[in-house]
Amino acid sequence: MQHTRLAAMPCPIARSLDRVGEWWSILILRDAFAGMTRFEQFRASLGIAPNMLTRRLNALVEAGLLERRLYSDRPPRHDYLLTERGRDFRQVLLALLAWGNRHFAPEGASVQLIHAESGALADPVLVDRATGLPVDGPAFRIVPGPAAGEATHRRLARSQAAPQASTGPAGPGPEGSAA
């Protein structure tokens, strides 16, 4: 089965999913944030087949989220290090961690985010850098950007006209599938 390439879509969510939407990729990035850099470390942590791990690492390198650095010539061995683009993904991982703990951990959290100095539990929220306000509030809505095509304008116009009760207090969710 041919995988649909989302990179050509104008939607930023589709383009992002094209790079990291496969679950192994997200788990590899999670492990990279935990300090893992070597093929065997990722394989042992994830229990992933070597051929699948090779494909996922290559895709993450190609997407610019990881950088491959040779550490042994014979045999050739590489470290996989987070790039600036990869390090930017940390916010997404923290949001997934908080969302997963809130909605899919009836037994309680197995992983938590804490403040390093105080040890206090942290509850990450996405805020606007300029105002400091949480972006899930009514002060924010999604609108077409300067590069938006006609289909995106139509879709977002429909979503702005939709009743707020069906989309929650923040309005419609992020850009959908057909931007």
Rank of each mutant, 00 (worst) to 15 (best):
P12A: 04
L113P: 01
A49I: 06
R85D: 10
L121V: 11
A8L: 01
G108S: 15
I28Y: 06
P172D: 00
A109G: 13
E62D: 03
S45Y: 02
M9W: 10
A179F: 12
Y80G: 00
L6G: 09
Q160W: 09
A7K: 01
R155G: 06
P10M: 13
P134I: 01
G119M: 10
P12D: 01
T83Q: 12
S177T: 09
L121S: 13
G171W: 08
R69D: 13
P174F: 01
D128F: 07
I114C: 13
G64P: 03
R68Q: 12
E150S: 15
R102I: 07
P146S: 15
G149T: 15
W99I: 13
W99A: 12
V61D: 12
A32K: 00
G119E: 06
P50I: 03
P144K: 09
H115R: 00
L60E: 02
N101K: 12
G21N: 04
P169C: 05
A109P: 14
F104S: 10
V127N: 10
S72M: 08
A44V: 02
F140G: 04
E22Y: 08
Q41E: 12
P106K: 14
L96M: 13
G168R: 03
E117R: 08
S166Y: 00
V92L: 13
A32M: 09
V135W: 04
R154Y: 13
D123Q: 13
A170L: 06
H153I: 14
T131Y: 05
R129Y: 08
G149Q: 15
L96R: 03
I142H: 08
R141M: 08
